[in-house]
């Protein structure tokens, strides 16, 4: 047996940059687990989610915060939520979720599937206007709202986690194209 252990690498190598009034920063250390609800298992799932994560099940397009650290449950599909939570040991993402939810959900690890970028600052919506087709107005997309959409040919999940703060998740393989697209949007709207 080899004595090598495997070192982890994040999709954006801990990228962070401030351009004008907008700050971009990769968010690491979060587990992301999808939980699919078995047919006729809505009640059991709601109970398990409450027990395991201290969260209510959000409707599609909404999110709910939970009791565990940094937990947010994202309503992504009619029978599926994504659970975002702090995970000191990323290998424990699925075991943690599975333990919490038991047979009330089919869980799948998504932690490594997405590059996670927080985009914050006063100019954030003006910059997002250049790539995001969604209406991010306060009334149309208030804090806690989440959506999956497409920006510059890239799939993106967007969660508003503050008045001027958005969490953007895009597939890991195209993370560098994604970072570039976001950077360019900010550059194009920031002062000379």
């Amino acid at each position: 047996m080899s004595d090598a252990t495997l070192a982890a690498r994040t999709p954006l190598d801990a990228y962070g940059r401030t351009i004008g009034t907008v700050t971009l920063a990769e968010v690491a250390g979060l587990a992301l687990v999808s939980a699919a609800v078995p047919h006729d298992g809505d009640e059991a799932f709601a109970a398990a989610l409450a027990d395991g994560f201290g969260a209510v099940r959000p409707a599609s397009g909404d999110s709910a915060t939970g009791a565990r650290p940094a937990t947010r449950v994202l309503g992504m599909q009619p029978d599926q939520v994504f659970i975002l939570f702090e995970a000191p040991d990323p290998d424990q993402a699925v075991p943690t979720a599975a333990a919490a939810l038991g047979s009330a959900a089919y869980v799948t690890d998504q932690s490594d599937s997405w590059a996670v970028l927080r985009m914050s600052g006063t100019g954030v919506r003006v910059a997002l206007e250049r790539i995001c087709p969604l209406d991010l107005d306060d009334l149309a997309f208030p804090e806690g709202r989440v959506a999956r959409t497409v920006m510059e040919h890239l799939a993106v999940m967007i969660l508003r986690d503050g008045p001027d703060s958005f969490l953007l998740m895009s597939p890991r393989s195209s993370a560098r194209s994604f970072r570039h697209a976001v950077e360019l949007s900010v550059e194009n709207v920031s002062g000379p």
């Binding site: 409707a59 599609s60 397009g61 009619p78």
Partner: peptide
């Protein structure tokens, strides 16, 4: 029906 108006490009 669940998410409201979305661009057909999605």
């Amino acid at each position: 029906p669940l998410l409201g108006p979305r661009d057909a490009a999605e």
